[in-house]
Design a protein around this nucleic acid. Structure first.
Length: 1093
RNA sequence: GCCGGAGUGGCGGAAUUGGUAUACGCGCACGACUCAAAAUCGUGUCUCGCAAGGGAUGUGGGUUCAAGUCCCACCUCCGGCACCA
C-alpha cells in the first residue's frame, strides 16, 4: 500500500506557491536567463501535446533556476485569429467572449502542470494594451515604406472569404478549411520583408541554432545567383534571369509569364489566341496550376522574335504559365538541351534542342600521359543487347586490363549508327543489329590510348542496338588477337567493371532514356572566348602558367603577400614543357610556399592576360590555368631563402581573399571557386567569368549584369476578417492612406459588427468605426477595414513579456538589456519558416528604428518533437484520438505526466511519439518508490554513485536529454533500494529530482524538515575527484576479438600490461600458453594471438 | 525532383574521442506473497546453439587491431519545398 496521494500533494503546493509568489521574477541586471516557449493559441482546451510543449521546458527552467539563474519563464495567449471567429460564428457567440472564456479555462489547465510561469506577466494579443503596440509598430513600418499597398495576385480562400499568406496555402488548399485557393488580383497590404533578405540570411551564420533549422530558413529564402540578360524583342527588350549564362548559345526560344507587361506592347499576329490563353491561365487556381504541372501549355506569339545577343539568331517567343511572374523577371531564356522544363516544352511544341554543354571526363584508369601527342577523335560506344537473354556484348582486351563496349572512330561521311554497326561487325562479327538509337549527346573525355601510344580527346556518342539473331561473320585475325568477345548481365555494367571514363554518364542514360543534360561540362557549339585581361602588344613573351588555389580544411585560402611590390596574390608559377597544369601546380606551390598539396580539380578554363613585366622590362602574354589544391599536411617545409625574402604566406577566408587580391585574374578564379555550385562548368566559365567581373574584353559582349534573386516574397498581411488587430490606417478624401498617430492608438476593434463573412470585410459594416474616423480626422475620411495576419501579433510578443505593463513603449531598452536576446526558445518545427522568420524580420526592423537593443531575438532555438495520438497518427478532433490531459493528470498526477513526457525521448530531436498510456506506469512506479524511500545509512558505493549521477544529470540537462537523466536517476534509486541511503545523500537526490516532479519533491523536502522551498535550493555539485576514473581503460583483444577491458595506470609499460592481462582471472581463460603479443596501442589496446590455435 | 532528418529487440529508446551493442522504462514469461486477483517484490527476456561458440544496429562495399559511430553507393520512412529558370 503506498501513500502517494498526488491530488492532495499537487493541490496543496500549487496553492502554496501561488500564495508565496514563488515564481515572480524580479528585473535584475545579472544572472538572467530568459526561457521562452511559443505561446498557445486560445483554441479552447489543451491536449497532451501542449503538456509536452510547456511542461518539459519547465523542467529546464527549474533546473536553470536552481543553478542560480534569475529565470524568466513567461506565458500568454495568441488570441486573435480565424479559429476564434469561425467558432464564434458557428455557435453564434461573440469572438471576444469565446476567446476570454477559453483563456480562463486554459489558464486553469496550465496551472495544473505545476509550471513555474510568472503569471504576473501574462499577456494576450487581443488585449488593446497589447495590440496598441502591434499597431504602433505597423505605423512605423508604414512611415519607413516597409508597409505598403500594392496590386498583387493574392491567395483567396472562397470559403473563409479572406486572403491567405503564401504560408497558409498548403498544396493549393486553404490551410484551415482545405478549400481550393484561388488567385485574385487585389490591393493588398504588404510588408517588405524582401528588404531584409540579405540580413536575414547572413544573420543566420552567427546564430547558435541547430543547423537544420538554419538550413531550412536559407532554403525558404532561396537565394540564387545568376545574371540578367537582355534580348531584343520587336522594338522592345526583354530581360531574363538565368543561373546558367553559359548556356546562352543554346537558347532556342523565349518564354514570358502570362502576366508579363511586355505582351500588351508587342505587335502580335494572333493576339486573340494569346489573350484567351492568358485569361485561362490567370483564372487557374493554385491547385490546377500544380496538377497541370506535367502537361506544359503555352501559345506562340506569332510574328514576334527575340534576338540572341551572342549568336544573333532570331528565336520565337512564347507565353506559357510554367514561367512564374513573381520570380526573376517573369521571363526566361529557354535552353531545352539543359533544362528539364524547357526540354518538356520544346518536345511538346516541336522546338529545336541545341546542345551546348557536354559532360567532360578525365579517365582515371588511363589518364593522359604527359609528353605524348594528343589526338582529337569522334567516337561511338556501342551497346548491343540480346533480347533473348537480356545480355550485353562486351570486349575483354587481351593486352590490357580493359573491359569495353565495342567502340571505334566515326569516319568521314558516316552516320553514328553506320559507324556503330561497322565497328560491331569488325570487332565481333555480329551483323544483324536492329533498333539502332543514339542515346543523348556527346561526351568529351581525355585519356591515354595505350594501344596507339597517344593521348586522346574524344567526343563520344552512345549508340544502342538489339541483336536480331546470332548470325556472325568471321572476325579478322588482327581484331580477334586484340580482344575476346563476351556477353554479360546488365548488372555487370558498372563503374568498377567497365573501363570507359564516360561510364557514369552511360549508366544514367541507359537507365532513363535521354533528357536534358543539366550537369557540368565543357562548352560546345558556343562561340565562347577566353576572358582576356589587358591588351595585346607587339613582341610579347609567351608563357603558360598556373595559379594555385590552396584550400585548407577550414576553408581558408593560401595567399602570398609580395614584400617588394605590396601585392597580394595567389601562388603563381610556370608550366614546364610537356607538363600538365595538374603537375605544375603542386610543384610550384611547394617551391614557392613550402606547402605539400594534392590536386582537387581545375577551376575554370584558361585565362589570357597581357601586361608589362616591370622587373624584366618586357611585355608578357600569359595563358593561365587555375588549379584547386588541398593541403596534405599543415606543416610548411623549408623553402629557399630567396623565396622567403620575396614574400610571406597568409591564410584568408575566400571572401576576404577576393577583396584583397591585387590582380583581377586572381579575383576571377577565386570567384569561380566560391560560386562553384552545380552550375560550375569548365569551358562555360569563359562567358560567366567574364561577365561576373565586368572585365573589359574586346571579343565578347553580353548585354547583362550580375543579379541575385530570392524565392522569398513580400509578406501579404491584410485579412478581410473581424477578429484581428485593426490595421491602423485611415484614408483621406482623395484615398491616400495615412497612419493613425500614436495618441489615437490603440485603434480599437469596433464591437458593433456583424462578423459573419459575406466577402465584404466585417469592419466595413461598423458605424462606430466610420464615425470615429470622421470625428478624429474629418469629413470624408474613411477607415481601413482590414485586420492583420496574426503572425504580426506573435512577431514581437517576447519583447512585451519582459516589460508587460509599459505605457510608453513596446518595452524599455534598459530592461531589454537585462533579458534580450531570449536565451532559449522552445517551439515546434512548423514555425521554422514562418513565425521564426517573421520575428527575426520584426526584430531587425525594430532595431533599425532604434526600439530594441538586439538584432536577433533568439540566441538559441530548439525544435521539439510531436506527441501523436495512441494510434500513431496526428491528434485531431475529427480522428477522435485526442488525449485529454486533465483526465490523465487526474489519474496519475501532474508530476508523473511531466516526467513521463521528459522520459519519452530526447527533447531536442524532432521525432514523433505515440502517446502510450502503458509506458507511463513506469514513471508512476518510480515516483511511488521515491515516495517510500526509508532513510538508513549510505554505503561508499552509494556515495560514489550519487556523484556520478549528479554529473550525468547535470550533463544531460545541458543537452536537453531528459530521458537519459531520468534513466540515471532510476539506476540510482534501484541501487538505493538494495543498499540503503543516508540523510545527506537523500537530500541531494531529492534536489536532483525537483525539476522533474516539483510537487512530490516539495512534499518530501518539507517532510525532511526543510524550511525553504526545494525550488529555491541550489543544484547539487559533484566532486570531480570522485567522478574521474583513475587510470585508463585498455581494451584487450584476443585472436582479433575484444574479450574485455582492464583499468590500468596511465602509460604503463607494455611488459607490465602483458603481465596484468595474462594473470587476469577472466581474461586468462582465453589465452593459451603459447601466445604472442601482436600489437599494443598505448593506453588503448593490447592485442594477443594464440599461436597454437 | 530538390533540401533536411531518421533507420538499433515486441515497443519508447541507450551507447564518451571509433573501444565488450541493446542502459533505463514498457511489455512479456516464470517465481514469491495471496483462498484468489490486483498491487508489490524477485528472476529472466536480441538471435541460432545442449554447450563451447557463432550471428545481428536498413542493404552492399570500404577504411581500421576495432565501425551503430568514419568514407562510398543504394533502399525505406518522416518533415519541408516544389515549373524558382
Amino acid at each position: 500500500m503506498n501513500d502517494y496521494d498526488h491530488k492532495k500533494i499537487e493541490g496543496k503546493w500549487q496553492k502554496e506557491w501561488e500564495k508565496q509568489e514563488l515564481y515572480k521574477v524580479e528585473d535584475k541586471d545579472k544572472d538572467n536567463f530568459y526561457t521562452l516557449v511559443e505561446f498557445p493559441y486560445s483554441s479552447g482546451n489543451l491536449h497532451i501535446g501542449h503538456w509536452y510543449t510547456f511542461a518539459v521546458p519547465d523542467i529546464y527552467a527549474r533546473y536553470m533556476r536552481m543553478t542560480g539563474k534569475n529565470v524568466l519563464y513567461p506565458i500568454g495567449f495568441d488570441s486573435f485569429g480565424l479559429p476564434a471567429e469561425n467558432a464564434a460564428i458557428k455557435r453564434n457567440l461573440n469572438p471576444k467572449k469565446w476567446t476570454d472564456e477559453n483563456i480562463e479555462y486554459m489558464r486553469g489547465q496550465l496551472k495544473s502542470i505545476g509550471a513555474s510561469f510568472d503569471w504576473s506577466r501574462e499577456l494576450k494579443t487581443s488585449d488593446p494594451d497589447y495590440y496598441k503596440w502591434t499597431q504602433y509598430i505597423f505605423t512605423k513600418m508604414f512611415e519607413k515604406g516597409l508597409a505598403y499597398k500594392s496590386e498583387a495576385a493574392v491567395n483567396w480562400c472562397p470559403s473563409c472569404m479572406t486572403v491567405l499568406a503564401n504560408e497558409q496555402v498548403v498544396n493549393g488548399l486553404c490551410e484551415r478549411c482545405d478549400t481550393e485557393v484561388e488567385k485574385k488580383k487585389q490591393e493588398q497590404w504588404m510588408l517588405k520583408i524582401t528588404d531584409y533578405t540579405e540580413d536575414l540570411l547572413s544573420g543566420l551564420d552567427d546564430l547558435d541554432w541547430p543547423e537544420e533549422i538554419k538550413e531550412s530558413q536559407r532554403n525558404w529564402i532561396g537565394k540564387s545567383r545568376g545574371m540578367l540578360l537582355k534580348f531584343k524583342v520587336g522594338d522592345g527588350e526583354v530581360s531574363v534571369f538565368t543561373t546558367r549564362p553559359d548556356t546562352i548559345c543554346g537558347v532556342t526560344y523565349i518564354v514570358l509569364a502570362p502576366e508579363h507587361p511586355l505582351i500588351d506592347k508587342l505587335d502580335i499576329n494572333n493576339r486573340k489566341e494569346v489573350e484567351d490563353y492568358i485569361g485561362k491561365s490567370l483564372k487557374k487556381t493554385e491547385l490546377e496550376r500544380q496538377t497541370d504541372q506535367k502537361e506544359k501549355t503555352g501559345v506562340k506569339l506569332e510574328g514576334v522574335f527575340a534576338r540572341n545577343p551572342i549568336t544573333n539568331e532570331e528565336v520565337p517567343v512564347y507565353v506559357a504559365d510554367y514561367v512564374l511572374a513573381a520570380y526573376g523577371t517573369g521571363a526566361v531564356m529557354a535552353v531545352p538541351a539543359h533544362d528539364d522544363r524547357d526540354f518538356d516544352f520544346a518536345n511538346k511544341f516541336g522546338l529545336p534542342i541545341k546542345e551546348v554543354v557536354i559532360p567532360n571526363r578525365v579517365d582515371k584508369k588511363n589518364p593522359p600521359v604527359p609528353g605524348k601527342k594528343s589526338v582529337e577523335r569522334q567516337n561511338v560506344h556501342v551497346v548491343v543487347k540480346n533480347p533473348k537473354d537480356g545480355k550485353y556484348l562486351l570486349l575483354k582486351w587481351k593486352e590490357y586490363d580493359w573491359t569495353t563496349f565495342p567502340m571505334g572512330g566515326v569516319e568521314e561521311g558516316e552516320s553514328l549508327i553506320e559507324a556503330a554497326k561497322r565497328e560491331v561487325l569488325e570487332e565481333t562479327g555480329y551483323k544483324n543489329l536492329i533498333n539502332g538509337k543514339v542515346l543523348g549527346g556527346q561526351v568529351r573525355a581525355e585519356y591515354f590510348a595505350a594501344h596507339k601510344d597517344e593521348n586522346r580527346v574524344s567526343f563520344t556518342n552512345l549508340v544502342t542496338f538489339d541483336l536480331e539473331n546470332e548470325e556472325q561473320d568471321e572476325v579478322d585475325e588482327e581484331e580477334s588477337s586484340k580482344h575476346e568477345v563476351c556477353w554479360v548481365d546488365g548488372k555487370d555494367l558498372t563503374l568498377e567493371k567497365m573501363t570507359h571514363a564516360e561510364m557514369d554518364v552511360w549508366i544514367s542514360r541507359l537507365d532513363k532514356e535521354s533528357g536534358a543534360y543539366t550537369g557540368d561540362g565543357v562548352l560546345v557549339n558556343s562561340d565562347a572566348r577566353l576572358p582576356i585581361f589587358g591588351k595585346e602588344h607587339e613582341n610579347e613573351e609567351f608563357r603558360k602558367t598556373i595559379t594555385g588555389i590552396v584550400q585548407r580544411k577550414d576553408g581558408k585560402i593560401l595567399c602570398v603577400k609580395w614584400k617588394e611590390f605590396g601585392w597580394t596574390s595567389l601562388p603563381i608559377g610556370g608550366i614546364d614543357k610537356g607538363e600538365l597544369p595538374e603537375e605544375a601546380a603542386p610543384r610550384e606551390v611547394l617551391e614557392e610556399t613550402g606547402y605539400k598539396t594534392k590536386v582537387v580539380r581545375r577551376i575554370g578554363g584558361p585565362v589570357e592576360m597581357h601586361f608589362y613585366a616591370e622587373n624584366k622590362k618586357v611585355w608578357r602574354n600569359r595563358l593561365d590555368q587555375a588549379v584547386l589544391l588541398e593541403l596534405i599536411d599543415d606543416k610548411q617545409e623549408d623553402i629557399s631563402k630567396e623565396e622567403t625574402e620575396r614574400h610571406e604566406c597568409m591564410w584568408l577566408n575566400p571572401e576576404e581573399a577576393i577583396n584583397n587580391m591585387t590582380h583581377p585574374e586572381n579575383r576571377l578564379c577565386l570567384e569561380r571557386l566560391v560560386r562553384s555550385d552545380d552550375s560550375y562548368t569548365e569551358g562555360a566559365d569563359e562567358i560567366k567569368g567574364y561577365n561576373f567581373n565586368g572585365i573589359p574584353n574586346t571579343k565578347v559582349e553580353i548585354p547583362g549584369e550580375k543579379k541575385t534573386t530570392y524565392r522569398l516574397r513580400d509578406w501579404s498581411v491584410g485579412r478581410q476578417r473581424y477578429w484581428g488587430t485593426p490595421i491602423p490606417v485611415v484614408y483621406d478624401p482623395e484615398g491616400n492612406p495615412h497612419p493613425i498617430p500614436e495618441e489615437n492608438l490603440p485603434w480599437t476593434l469596433p464591437e458593433d459588427v456583424d462578423f459573419k463573412p459575406t466577402g465584404e470585410p466585417p469592419l466595413a459594416k461598423s458605424k462606430e468605426l466610420k464615425e470615429r474616423t470622421e470625428k478624429i480626422f474629418g469629413e470624408g475620411w474613411r477607415p481601413e477595414v482590414e485586420t492583420m495576419d496574426t503572425f504580426l501579433d506573435s512577431s514581437w510578443y517576447f519583447l512585451r513579456y519582459i516589460d508587460p505593463r509599459n505605457k510608453k513603449e513596446i518595452s524599455s531598452k534598459d530592461i531589454q538589456k537585462n533579458w534580450m536576446p531570449v536565451d532559449q526558445y522552445f517551439g515546434g518545427s512548423e514555425h521554422t519558416t514562418m513565425h521564426l522568420l517573421f520575428a527575426r524580420f520584426f526584430q531587425r526592423v525594430l532595431y533599425d528604428l532604434g526600439m530594441v537593443t538586439e538584432q536577433e531575438p533568439f540566441k538559441k532555438r530548439l525544435n521539439r518533437g510531436l506527441i501523436m495520438g495512441p494510434d500513431g497518427s496526428k491528434m485531431s478532433k475529427s480522428k477522435g484520438n485526442v488525449v485529454d490531459p486533465d483526465e490523465v493528470v487526474e489519474r496519475v498526477g501532474a508530476d508523473t505526466v511531466r516526467m513521463y513526457l521528459a522520459f519519452i525521448g530526447p527533447y531536442a530531436e524532432v521525432g514523433s511519439y505515440p502517446w502510450d498510456m502503458g509506458g507511463i506506469v513506469g514513471i508512476r512506479r518510480f515516483l511511488e518508490r521515491v515516495n517510500s524511500i526509508k532513510i538508513t545509512e549510505s554505503s561508499d558505493a552509494i556515495k560514489s554513485l550519487l556523484q556520478k549521477t549528479i554529473k550525468k544529470v547535470t550533463d544531460d540537462f545541458i543537452l536537453f536529454k531528459f530521458n537519459t537523466a531520468i534513466s540515471s536517476l532510476m539506476i540510482f534509486l534501484n541501487s538505493v533500494q538494495k543498499e540503503g541511503i543516508g540523510k545527506d545523500e537523500y537530500l541531494v537526490f531529492l534536489r536532483l529530482l525537483a525539476p522533474f516532479a516539483p510537487h512530490l519533491l516539495e512534499e518530501l523536502w518539507k517532510k525532511s524538515g526543510m524550511k525553504e522551498s526545494i525550488h529555491l535550493s541550489k543544484w547539487p555539485k559533484y566532486d570531480e575527484s570522485m567522478v574521474v576514473e583513475e587510470g585508463v581503460k585498455v581494451m584487450v583483444q584476443i585472436d582479433g576479438k575484444v574479450r574485455g577491458s582492464i583499468l590500468v595506470d596511465k602509460d604503463i609499460s607494455d611488459n607490465e600490461l602483458e603481465k596484468i592481462v595474462t594473470s587476469d582471472e577472466k581474461l586468462s581463460g582465453w589465452i593459451s600458453k603459447d601466445y604472442e603479443v601482436k600489437k599494443v596501442v598505448k593506453n588503448r589496446l593490447i592485442s594477443l594471438i594464440n599461436k597454437s590455435a
